[in-house]
Simulated scan of single mutants.
Amino acid sequence: MRSPWRAQLRTAWRDFWRLKKHRQEPWWMGLLLNASVGALVGLSFVLLAALFSGNLLDTSFWRPSLVLSMQLGTVIALLSHAGLRLLEHLLSEERLQAINEGTGRASLLVFVGLPTLCSALGLVLIDTLLRWQRLGVPVAPRIPNVGTLITFLFCGALFSLLSFWRLRAQLKAQRTREQVTEAQLRLLQAQIEPHFLFNTLANVEGLIDYEPRQARQMLNAFTDYLRASLQQMRAQDVSLGQELDLVQSYLTVMQCRMGERLRTRTEVPEALLAARIPPLLLQPLIENALHHGLEPKVQGGLLQLRARPEGAGLVLEIVDDGVGLRHSHAHPRRGNGVALRNIRERLTAAYGPKAQLLLEEAAGGGTCVQLRLPALQPLRHPAPGPFVTT
């Protein structure tokens, strides 16, 4: 498993020039990253000047100005960092997003004007500190000579424009990825819907001849499910509470078929009900647990659905005390691998490699399916006392 600080560092680098109200990385990591980038920029300017003048191999030419240039780059980067973080504190989330995605005056002022101004301020600050150190007494700031000031303003503007271009390209690539992911999710989701619909209709058809009353109850429950899920089926994500409502409607359909052979229990902390997950994520797994675990067992059994927070993420568990994985592998049923593969593909499309679907033998027999999802919003730590439905 990769270290959390590495993931935070990658996030900090990705959002280096992006305005965000809430950041995942700690505050000191942003300072360290900005200071490092500023020092590298200062180093680059010295080496480029030596290269263009033909003195790159002559260390006596560029070594005396190396430390000063790196210090100046660090100060300018930290001043820019402080200015951007101040804007994040003062402006609303909507305004910050508009500045990130815009190309107008406000975006140019923030991402080009602010760093350019900080270049001049950094030059004045370094000059003041060096004169203070050399004279041993506090000195008043002074305006640098025109040539030096113009040079730093030009370099600051050039670097800021390059960073601004990088942010534009980054946001454009992100929007493209989101569009591709959404299309992929909808395609994968569309593969699940007929799977459930056809199975349920086949069950109703099988009951019509010898159990018409039970068939009618199942059809009514199925209609309720369709009515409740019609809007959610095409959504990109739903709350965990909404998904549980759909699951309960599905279990009502299956209760009509299995009767007392099916017992269910749900344990989900109330504070997790607002967490966002892809729609129709749990129903195919519950369908697998019933068809491959509990239905082959003469006496039926218990199906449990549990949820708990894990760090910044969420763990969902579907546990049955049915025949277990060995029996399922020895007598495979049609559609089992398709549903699991489909969900894994949906998780990868929605979250990347961080999300997992794990299948293992349950402690007391049967099967345990685990969904491990990364940080979700909104996700709050649960208050004491779970929300339990039996």
Rank of each mutant, 00 (worst) to 15 (best):
R95N: 14
R95G: 11
H89Q: 14
P141V: 11
L129E: 06
C118V: 01
F45G: 04
L66S: 07
I99H: 03
F52L: 05
L84Q: 15
A77M: 10
E88H: 05
E94D: 10
R142F: 04
L162S: 09
F45P: 00
S92R: 12
L108Y: 06
E101W: 12
W62V: 04
Q133D: 02
W132N: 10
L109C: 09
S44G: 12
A98S: 05
S119I: 00
A169L: 05
R105L: 15
G122E: 01
L87P: 00
L48Y: 01
S65N: 08
E93L: 06
W165N: 09
T103W: 00
F61D: 11
T148S: 13
G147R: 08
L79N: 02
F164D: 07
S163T: 00
G73D: 01
G104V: 10
L48R: 08
H81K: 02
A120Y: 13
F52E: 01
L84H: 15
F45D: 02
S69A: 14
V75Q: 06
G73S: 07
A140C: 07
F111S: 06
R95E: 15
R166K: 06
F111W: 00
N55F: 09
A39N: 12
L123F: 05
L117F: 11
W165S: 10
M70S: 05
V41W: 04
M70D: 06
L117C: 10
L90H: 12
L125R: 00
E93C: 06
P138N: 08
A39S: 14
L78T: 02
T116E: 03
G136S: 09
L96C: 04
T128R: 08
E101T: 04
L47Y: 13
L158E: 02
A49I: 14
S92E: 14
G38N: 05
V139P: 01
L84K: 14
L68I: 15
F152M: 08
L56D: 03
H89T: 13
L79Q: 07
S65P: 12
G42C: 10
S44V: 05
I126S: 03
A157F: 06
L57Y: 01
T128S: 11
R131Y: 13
G122N: 00
A157P: 10
G73I: 08
P115C: 00
D127K: 09
V137N: 07
L57T: 12
V139K: 01
L96G: 02
R166P: 13
F159G: 00
A77C: 02
F164N: 02
L135I: 07
A157E: 07
T151R: 05
L162Y: 03
S53G: 15
L153Q: 09
L149S: 00
F45T: 03
G147W: 06
P138R: 09
R95V: 13
V137R: 04
L87Y: 08
Q97Y: 13
A98Y: 07
H89R: 15
F61P: 02
T151M: 10
L43K: 04
G38K: 03
A98N: 05
G42W: 12
G136Q: 08
F52W: 02
F159P: 01
L149I: 01
L161G: 13
G83Q: 07
L79F: 03
A120M: 14
I76W: 01
L84D: 11
L121S: 13
E93K: 03
L47V: 15
S92A: 13
A39W: 08
G83R: 09
P141L: 10
F45W: 02
H81P: 04
P138T: 04
